[in-house]
Amino acid sequence: MREKPRRVRLGQAAVLLGLLAAWEGLSRKAGGLFLPGPGAAVSTVADGVQGGWLLPHLATTVVELGWAYVWAVAIGLSLGFGLGTRPVLREAYEDLLLNLYAVPKVTLFPLFLASFKLGMASKVAFGAFHGLFPVAIYTWTAIRTMNPVHLKVARSLKLSSWETFWRVLFPAVLPGIVTGLRLGFNLTLLGVVLGEMFASRGGLGFLLMSFAGAFDATRIVAVIVVLVVMALGANGMLLALERRIRRGPEGYLQVS
């Protein structure tokens, strides 16, 4: 998989240019008012920054996202390690959690609104609920599929349970966990934005819905651009972390 990196690079650049050209073309065809092109989107983002209608909402979303992700990781890792190291717990709860993962979790958002009130807390809780599943699932899968010889060695070296965890279990499952951390981040962001779109008075999701009500396509596209940049930036960092920890060569179409 290492030959022709140049053709691949060129192709990737061509895809990006093609996407932008298609966006521009669609925008011209639909009329800039209905679907603003890339240029208009960027200048609207700049206008949002200067005009002050963008940054406070961006800050709200970032704060909610940050707290939600902290909770998603904390709960996800605890669930993952709990179910991964205790067969009884896994037998009892794995199916339940996998099924819950497949359910459209938005339907449960009113429950979060009811228990956490309308402010930030409900979005944080819902984002965390959305994002904790990949973290938990990847963690317990990594523990289950880890080479049991590592643990045997730890036992024969008479490591304490803390040492076993810190020096053996944790490094062995880390590559699996970082993938879960990245996918968990994506779902946390989705959950926070969905929560804001459904019921809130702040955040980028709230902006999307209020601009939809005002038929303001230009500002909607600007908010989408901000969200995309946010998602790509965070993902770039998490992907780089993942590659450093994994080290091995990249697999075919390895998307998760």
Partner: peptide
């Protein structure tokens, strides 16, 4: 990774 629901509005 993209919050695709943002496209809905």
């Amino acid at each position: 990774a993209l919050p695709l629901f943002a496209l809905y509005p």
